[in-house]
Design a protein around this nucleic acid. Sequence first.
DNA 1: TCACTTATTGACAATGATTATCAATAGCGA
DNA 2: TCGCTATTGATAATCATTGTCAATAAGTGA
Lengths: 129, 129
Amino acid sequence: MKRNTWQRSAVRTALDDQEAFVSAQQLHLQLRKDGTGIGLATVYRALADLASIGEADTLQSEEGEALYRACSTGKHHHHLICRECGATVEFEANDIEEWAKRVAREHGFSNPEHVVDVFGVCAKCSKLK
Amino acid sequence: MKRNTWQRSAVRTALDDQEAFVSAQQLHLQLRKDGTGIGLATVYRALADLASIGEADTLQSEEGEALYRACSTGKHHHHLICRECGATVEFEANDIEEWAKRVAREHGFSNPEHVVDVFGVCAKCSKLK
DNA sequence: TCACTTATTGACAATGATTATCAATAGCGA
DNA sequence: TCGCTATTGATAATCATTGTCAATAAGTGA
């Protein structure tokens, strides 16, 4: 049976506070700074749990590090991510869903899923240049 | 100045022979089986080179491992990848390029790039079930 | 062809993220 | 409160990838 521990809710809260995608390591550091004595392995476990129940999104950084972000919605969505600061906007795109299905079908592929994320430089970071 | 070594061409050839995305480790193993005494670090270096000059595509596996595949074209393209066997089809999608630009602009993001890959089960693997 | 410069190689160590281990702790139902 | 066991956390283990550096070999000019 699933138990409610302060560690799990601390991880969820810390993730909710993040605007950008963050790594388990970063989140662990933040939680330590906040005065909690939470262990690294626990952060990894909590994040994996959140991802598995769909409350967190995950993607791999350029360097292969796993990054997490709290989902604002349970619905399927995509991300627009700032390359500079990591700020992320979630959005839906029904055309894309249809398009992906069509492309898959045309090539004889079934059971399609897709990874569609857009990277760019957000307005704030553009101004700083 | 860049030098041409048998190691580099061996890696390129081995990569060309692969239908699916493969890891550096897998390719190294294959090259060893083929009788070459090529070193692991060399395979990593050669793959990084190929990727940097646009002759190989790269993506991260579910487990965070870096996977490579020979590009059949130098043009921008996307992938349709079989979840079962890894078989990959390259395709272009001009609508998507436009769409990504528009989404980015609408949110004040500049300099957009995008990651668009579709996963599914190819016809061959579907039959095996 | 030959010597020479230096890019490249490869064995091995080092790094760094993630996962496994396992005894100690702490939810939660009774 | 008691007892069972899921969870935690310190630490070790794993594993892909990168750094190191002496030895090798590609390409160049004589």
